[in-house]
């Protein structure tokens, strides 16, 4: 700083000397007009008046005005930034809420689906059980009926065979076996047939 200062001073003095000598060389009147002391009071007077008034104008009107505009802009920018930040936070909150509710809905839907599936399964199981039970009853009944029918048919068959055996014996051999004898013979024959796989 000091060095620059000294340099500048030296330089300007040198420049002034050059300029002054140039002025003399050019054959100017009695040197520089700047050194005419008679003009100084007027210059000082007007400098004080004009700079003074200018200072008042700048200090009272211009700088407060520019300063307030800049200040206003700064506040406005700050406000806008704050508002933007708030809006951004709000948006994030909304998004989080939305996602939470979406998750909830998804869980609910999944549970509902699970319940529905369970219920349907239970219903189907119950129906199947009932049907199986019904079927079993019917099968049982049918089997009983069949067994009865078979027993009846068997007994009928024995009776018929006995009668036929008696008849045949009477006709063929001229003997009339008793019913008990015939029955015995038929039963023995039937046993043989069953054993041979016919029955």
């Amino acid at each position: 700083m000091r060095r620059v200062h000294a340099w500048a001073t030296t330089a300007s003095v040198a420049v002034m000397a050059t300029a002054t000598s140039a002025a003399y060389a050019a054959g100017g009147e009695a040197g520089l007009p700047q050194l005419k002391v008679g003009t100084w009071p007027s210059q000082l007077f007007w400098l004080v008046v004009i700079f003074g008034l200018g200072y008042v104008f700048m200090a009272r009107v211009v700088t407060p005005r520019i300063g307030s505009v800049l200040e206003e802009r700064r506040t406005r920018l700050d406000e806008d930034l704050t508002r933007a930040r708030e809006a951004s936070a709000e948006a994030a909150q909304t998004r989080a809420d939305y996602e939470a509710s979406l998750d909830e809905a998804r869980n609910e839907a999944a549970e509902f689906a699970r319940n529905a599936a369970n219920e349907a399964q239970a219903k189907a199981d119950a129906t199947e059980k009932k049907a199986a039970k019904k079927m079993a009853t019917r099968i049982g009944k049918a089997e009983t009926a069949l067994a009865e029918a078979r027993a009846e048919a068997e007994s009928n068959l024995t009776a018929i065979a006995t009668e036929a055996a008696i008849e045949a014996a009477t006709q063929v051999a001229g003997v009339k076996p008793t019913k008990a004898q015939a029955d015995k013979a038929v039963k023995a024959a039937a046993k043989t047939l069953v054993a041979q796989g016919v029955g």
């Binding site: 008679g38 003009t39 009071p41 007027s42 210059q43 007077f45 007007w46 400098l47 004009i50 700079f51």
Partner: peptide, 13 residues
């Protein structure tokens, strides 16, 4: 004192 309004004063103004 001479406090005339001069060319210098004019350009200050």
């Amino acid at each position: 004192y001479d406090i005339s309004f001069t060319n210098s004063s004019l350009f200050m103004l």
